[in-house]
Design a protein around this nucleic acid. Sequence first.
DNA 1: AATAATGTGGC
DNA 2: GCCACA
DNA 3: TATT
Length: 534
Amino acid sequence: MAPKKKPESDPHGMFSGMVVFLVPKGVQSRRFQIWKERLVQMGAVIEERFSKRVTHVFAMHSDALLQQLDRERLSRFKGRVLLYQWLEDCLKSGEILSEDMYLLKLDSQGEHIPEKSLDPGLTNQRTSSDLQQLLNKKSKLSTEDTKIVKNESHDDDGKEKAVFSSTSTISSHGEVDSLSYGNTRQQHLDAENEASSLSYHPPDLNKNITEIFGKLVNIYRALGDDRRSFSYHKAIAVIEKLPFKIESTDQINNLPSIGKSMKDHVQEIMTTGKLSKLEHFETDEKVRTISLFGEVWGIGPSTALKLYEKGHRSLDDLRNDDSLTNAQKLGLKYFDDIGQRIPRHEAQEMEHILQKVGEDVLPGVVIICGGSYRRGKATCGDIDIIITHPDGKSHKGFLPKFVKHLKDMNFLREDLIFSSHSEEATDSGVDTYFGFCTYPGRELRHRIDLKVYPRDIYAFGLVAWTGNDVLNRRLRLQAESKGFRLDDTGLFPATQGSGGKRGAKGSASLKFNTEKEIFDFLDFPCLEPHERNL
DNA sequence: AATAATGTGGC
DNA sequence: GCCACA
DNA sequence: TATT
Ligand SMILES: [Mg+2]
Ligand SMILES: [Mg+2]
């Protein structure tokens, strides 16, 4: 017998192991038949029902998908939903491509946003500003958020993570925290996934790799090599999305952000379970010391290096160096304090204290806690306070009085930065205070930032100081792509001249009263604060 | 070899 | 130019 | 470091 030219099914084909369910809607029947045959030829199993065995679903678009399968089932589906295009491209290239770009997602249609519904008699949102909304809420019930906080890994802003966690013989404050990115990816498979998205996060397959890369992210950042740090950051994101455990570098051949060097590292980790490059860093006194020094407020990669070259090796060495700036000395003095995260409810209490004192100093003043608190985090690295006044005028000169009151009552303790522009209307009239505060009755220092914005640019301040940093960068890039420049004081037509100048804004800012108006203008999805933990 | 993840103020 | 902030 |  001659060997078969066209085997009905090849158990070693490139699609072997896949159990697929095909959504025919929107597909030319001829094409549908071809794809079906090719899948079978290459080792896939076609399932006629959307059963538990299914590992992949293919559809032309989300409408077709939803017509065939109900959201409930899909939300529990643990495989992947892909566009037929993936199939097409794989067949064209003759190899399995990354599925990442072909994931079919469902638009969430904002079903169950917990907050915001507490606004029964208020439909005048068309003309309402963020400021007005705050004022309305204030006069109704002061029950702040009943938000549902999920995110456990407090990765966010505030204190940067210790690069080397516990093994430091020099010092280490109580940051438990298994550092870095994708590791603590909870298996929140069912929890609140609902109909929001079908993107499926496999439990830490490849944790072996991403954990190590995550440490390199932090080390390179501490060394000031931001580009390299970010390269690892991107590689982690790509690897985390893979639906399989990497067992050969062939499997990561055409992935974005993963080049020769990354592949070599993956190879080494696969075979030895570790990365000599990392081991080297972690035992290198210079790297360890610079990383530690950089955790001090006011000391960055450059200063840390200089201090190392000066011969310093421990925080105690630094404490005996009088050349440190005052801010750096304070950062050193309260090194451990600052490393303590602030429980959400305490941040909320401090927000209330500030609101009460603020009202005494200037009736009508609006004071809210932004940053990670506003984004709904369970703990906060520091306290960010954003302030304005609805009359558009009396915010001027408020901050110095406010700070004095807060110091008199021992809430504010030491200063890092204090600048006032509101009286002269320089720097867009924004006043700034950076310093330390304490919770009533305690001595533990927390970092606190106070920012006062004129009413007319309040929305920009709110966006910027709610963050997170990643969102801010994305918004600013989006603004740039539209020929604008975004910062915490406004949105400006891009200056033509070299564009590089710092502080040259050319012309006046567009005027927006709400965060939504800013998002909308940039054609950026208007995210609720708790959705801004990017 | 250039570019990439922002823009700003204090120091 | 460094450092901080989101 | 990855990409162009
Ligand atoms: Mg530092
Ligand atoms: Mg913060």
